[in-house]
Design a protein around this nucleic acid. Sequence first.
DNA 1: CGTAGTGTTGAATTGAATCAAGTGTCGTGG
DNA 2: CCACGACACTTGATTCAATTCAACACTACG
Lengths: 268, 268
Amino acid sequence: MRSIDNSTELNNSTLASSELQDNRSNAPVVKLCPHSAGVSCGSCRLNELCLPIALSEGEMQQLDDIVERNRPYKKADHLYRHDEFRSIFAVRSGSFKTYVLSSSGSGRVTGFYLPGEIIGMDGIADRTHANSAVALEHASICEIPFSQLESLSLKLPSLQHNFFSILGAEITKDQKIHTILSSYSAEQRIASFLLGVSSRYARVGLSPTRFHLPMTRGDIGEYLGLTVETVSRLFTALQKKGLISVDNREIALLAKDELRAIVGADEL
Amino acid sequence: MRSIDNSTELNNSTLASSELQDNRSNAPVVKLCPHSAGVSCGSCRLNELCLPIALSEGEMQQLDDIVERNRPYKKADHLYRHDEFRSIFAVRSGSFKTYVLSSSGSGRVTGFYLPGEIIGMDGIADRTHANSAVALEHASICEIPFSQLESLSLKLPSLQHNFFSILGAEITKDQKIHTILSSYSAEQRIASFLLGVSSRYARVGLSPTRFHLPMTRGDIGEYLGLTVETVSRLFTALQKKGLISVDNREIALLAKDELRAIVGADEL
DNA sequence: CGTAGTGTTGAATTGAATCAAGTGTCGTGG
DNA sequence: CCACGACACTTGATTCAATTCAACACTACG
C-alpha cells in the first residue's frame, strides 16, 4: 500500500490538511515555521538559503507571486514522476528522495533533498524529469513554475544570478558524489554521507551532531552504491569505534574530526 | 616534462601558432573548421550545439563580442587549475579532461569534454573551480567571461534559456553517471562509456562507430571508478566477444545493440 | 496483534583490486 | 635514422572488500 509503485499522488485532501489548517488564514508578518502553508517568501525562515537571496522586498514580492504553495505531501507521495517537466520545487519542510528505476527493475536513489534545497533541476534540459521524486516523510514544498521563473529572471538580475548559482551548486555537488563513488571505500562513503547530512542540517539551523535520518538504510545504500547490509554493518562498526551513536534512524556524530579523517577530505 | 604538475600554461606562443597562422587574417563568411582561430560564432561549425542555439544574427553578434578566442592549447596545458573562476569555456576542437586531486594524492577524473561541449560550470556556485581542466591533445576553446554572459543573458531571453538548458543538461549528465557508478558492473560501465563517447562524436558529425579515444586507459578508469588493469581487460574481453575492435586508442563499435544490451539501458 | 517493511548479523562467494612482470608505443636527442 | 627512456598498455596470479545468501529481530502501523 505504501510502496513506491502504487501510491496515489496528492491524495491527502482530508487526512493531511489538519496540521496545517490553523495557519491557513493568518497573514504572516514575521518569519514563520516553514511547515506553515501561509508562509510567503518574505516571511519564510529559509529565504536566505533559497532563491530569494539578496532580493529586495519588491523583488521578493514578484517572486512570491509566481510561487505555488501546494498542500503538503505525506510519506510516499510523489512530487513528480519521470515525466513532463513544469516546475522546480523548493523543500520547505520534510524531505524527499529522487530515484530512477533502472531498466533492470531495481531503482537507484539519485539524491536526497532536505529543507531549503531545490528539487527538479534534472528536468530543465529535456523538459522531462530524468528521475522521480517522492516524499520520505510529511513534507511541504514551494512550486516554482519554470517558464515563469525564466521570465522573471530576465527582469531581476539578482534572481537570475541566484538561479545560476543554484544550478552551479547542483553541478558541483554531483561532481563531488562522482568522486566519492569512483574512489571511496564503503566506510569513507558512509562517513562522508553522515558529514554531508550533518552540514546540510546545520545550514537550516538544526543540530549538526544529533539528527534523524529520514531515509532507510536501503535508500542510503542505493545512493552510495552499497548494499543495505554493508550500510548496516558500517553503522554498527562506526558505533563500535565510538565515532557515532546509532539508535535506529537517530544519529549522533560523536567524533566529527575522526569521521573527517576517515574520509580524507571533503564532505558530501 | 609533460606531466600534469609541471607544465607551463599557455606557453605555446612560438610552437603552436604555426598551424593556425594561415587562418588568422581572413574574415570568414561561411562555417569554418573549428580549429580556426578566425572563426566567429556565426561562422562556427558548432554553433547549433553551443550557446548560440536559436539566436538571431544580431544576438549572435552580441554574444560573439564577449567571446574570447585564445590561442590553442597543447597537450597537458591547463585550461584552468583549481582556482578562481572567471569564465566558462566552449571546446572548439580537441578535448579536455577535468580532475580533482584528492587529498590522498591521487587524482580522479571527473569529466571529459569534446568539441561542442562546455567546461567550467563547476565554478559558478563558489566562484572557484572545484576541479582543474587540462588538454588531452591539441585543442582550442572559446572563453566566455561569466559576468558578461550573465549580463548579456538578461538582455537576450534565448541566450538565458540556452544557458539554463546547458546547466540542466550538465546536471542530468552527472546524475546519469551517479547511477552508473552506484550500480553498474565494470563491463556495463565500459560499454556505457563507449556508447556515450560514440553519441557525443555523432553529435558533432563524426563517426559514431569508429573513433579515437583522446584519453588513456588510466583516465577512463579514474572516471569510471575502475583500475587501469580492469579497463584494459574489459577492452580485450569485449573485443574477443566481437563487440568492439581495439587498436590502441582507435575504437570501432561493431555491435552497438549488443553493447546496449550489456548496459541494459541508457548511455553515458 | 499480526504482517510487511526495516534492520541486523553471520558465512560463503565473487568481482575487481592489487601485485607483479612483462610488451608496445611515441617523442626526443644523439 | 636509430636508440633511448618514459609512459601506456596488457596479461597473469593472488588477495580482499563488498556482495550475496540466509536467517532472524525489531518496529510500527492498520
